[in-house]
Amino acid sequence: MNIIRWSFANGIRRTRWLSISSPIHRDLNNPLLFHPSQSPLPSNNRPLPYNLRALSDKTSSSIHDDVKPEPTQTVSQEQQTEEEKKTNHDIKDDQTRVLQAALEHVPTLGWTEAAMVAGAREVDLSPSIVGAFPRKEAALVEYFMDDCLQRLLGEIESREEELSNLVFHDRIAKIIRIRLEMQVPYISKWPQALSIQANPLNLPTSFKQRAVLVDEIWHAAGDRSTDLDWYAKRTLLGGIYAATELYMLTDYSPEFRNTWIFLDRRVSDAVDCRKTAQEAAQLATAIGAGIGNTVQAFLRRQTQ
Rank of each mutant, 00 (worst) to 15 (best):
A198I: 08
A198P: 03
N199G: 06
N199I: 04
N199H: 15
P200E: 04
P200C: 04
P200W: 12
L201Q: 05
L201H: 07
N202Q: 12
L203D: 08
L203F: 11
L203C: 10
L203N: 09
L203M: 13
P204W: 12
P204C: 06
P204T: 03
P204K: 14
P204F: 11
T205R: 14
T205S: 11
T205E: 06
S206M: 04
S206C: 09
F207Q: 13
F207W: 11
F207V: 13
F207A: 12
F207K: 10
K208I: 02
K208V: 07
K208F: 13
K208G: 14
K208M: 12
K208R: 15
Q209T: 09
Q209H: 11
Q209M: 07
R210P: 00
R210E: 08
R210Y: 11
A211D: 14
A211N: 13
V212H: 12
V212W: 11
V212I: 15
V212L: 15
V212Y: 10
V212K: 04
L213Q: 05
V214N: 04
D215P: 11
D215S: 09
D215C: 09
D215K: 08
E216W: 11
E216R: 12
E216D: 10
I217H: 04
W218Q: 03
W218N: 07
W218H: 07
H219F: 12
A220G: 05
A220Q: 02
A220Y: 00
A221Q: 06
A221P: 08
G222P: 02
G222D: 06
G222M: 06
G222T: 01
G222H: 01
D223T: 07
D223N: 08
D223C: 08
R224I: 08
S225W: 05
S225E: 06
S225I: 06
S225M: 05
T226H: 13
T226S: 15
T226Y: 13
T226M: 15
D227M: 12
D227I: 11
D227P: 12
D227C: 10
L228N: 12
L228D: 10
L228E: 10
L228M: 13
L228S: 14
D229N: 14
D229R: 15
W230S: 14
W230F: 15
W230R: 14
A232F: 10
A232E: 10
K233Y: 01
K233P: 09
R234N: 06
R234A: 05
R234C: 02
T235A: 07
T235Y: 10
T235E: 01
L236W: 03
L236R: 05
L237F: 00
L237P: 00
L237G: 03
L237D: 00
L237N: 03
G238Q: 07
G238W: 06
G239P: 05
G239A: 05
G239W: 05
G239F: 01
I240E: 04
I240S: 01
Y241F: 02
Y241T: 00
Y241N: 02
A242V: 06
A242T: 07
A243E: 03
A243R: 02
A243L: 00
T244A: 00
T244L: 01
T244D: 07
T244M: 01
Y247N: 04
Y247A: 02
Y247H: 09
Y247T: 02
Y247L: 04
Y247C: 00
M248N: 04
M248P: 10
L249T: 00
L249Y: 03
L249A: 03
L249P: 09
T250F: 08
T250M: 08
T250R: 08
D251E: 06
D251Q: 00
D251L: 02
D251P: 04
D251G: 04
